[in-house]
């Protein structure tokens, strides 16, 4: 038996789950881009200022922490918790947003800002998978290979990404564009394979879609 028989799913929207005939929606409508609109860097209402972990395509590992609108957002985050320690995770997100990864210097600086020991910050940073401990490419591609996606060919999707970017898992491609890693369940199990590229989920991804998906990334940045 060949490794992968074509699946007879009734629909196939490469990149997003929708428009099955029951619904007539565009990708933007499904993603909520229309509703969300452009979000301010300084954060809008403080209640949601901790929830802006954009992954920016342009990252500067030496960017200052935190200035201008980022400083505003930092201050807003602090108002939402009874102590400064609780702001650690969102502030690290913020730091990663501007610097692209969390370097030892970043940990040190964040610790200083929140009055936490650097060793403690390091302990927290290394606990969570979303903090990049090393610089990553412009596009961080996380392929879910957990059970539901795996049943439907996630391993092939993973291989296709690696082949396209010509890298090993965790490496950044020579042109600095792609870093492909394996991810645990992304909660998109009904739309396999689920792939997260920077902030965005791509659902129903099949191995054959990879080249065009990657071209789209290079061209549009999303």
């Amino acid at each position: 038996m060949s490794p992968k028989e074509p699946m007879d799913t009734p629909f196939h929207n490469p990149g997003w789950a929708g428009n099955t005939g029951e619904f007539d929606l565009t990708e933007d409508q499904v993603r909520g881009d229309d509703f969300v609109g452009s979000r301010p860097l300084a954060g809008a209402h403080p209640s949601s200022s901790a929830s802006y972990p954009y992954v920016l395509v342009d990252k500067h590992p030496e960017s200052p922490l935190f200035e201008g609108p980022y400083r505003e957002r930092f201050d807003k985050i602090l108002t939402r918790y009874p102590d400064t320690r609780a702001a650690l995770l969102p502030v690290l997100n913020l730091a990663q947003e501007v610097r692209g990864h969390v370097s030892p210097e970043t940990m040190d600086r964040v610790g200083e800002l929140l009055d936490l020991e650097p060793a403690y910050v390091r302990g927290v940073v290394t606990f969570y998978t979303m903090y990049n401990k090393r610089p990553v490419g412009r596009f961080l591609i996380q392929v879910c290979t957990n059970i539901s996606c795996n049943l439907c060919g996630a391993d092939e999707v993973m291989d296709a990404f690696l082949r396209y970017s010509n890298t090993e898992p965790g490496e950044t491609s020579e042109d600095g564009d792609f870093t492909v890693i394996e991810a645990e369940c992304l909660a998109g199990c009904g739309f396999p394979t689920c792939v997260q590229i920077n902030s965005r989920y791509y659902e129903n991804v099949k191995a054959g879609d990879i080249p065009s998906l990657c071209e789209r990334l290079r061209a549009d940045g999303k």
Binding site: S47, S48, A50, S51, P53, R80, Y81, L89, P90, L92, N93, F127, Y128, T129, M130, Y131, E184, C185
Partner: peptide
């Protein structure tokens, strides 16, 4: 408050 995690099951 909407708080986001950072990747841990």
């Amino acid at each position: 408050t909407v708080h986001v995690g950072s990747g841990a099951y």
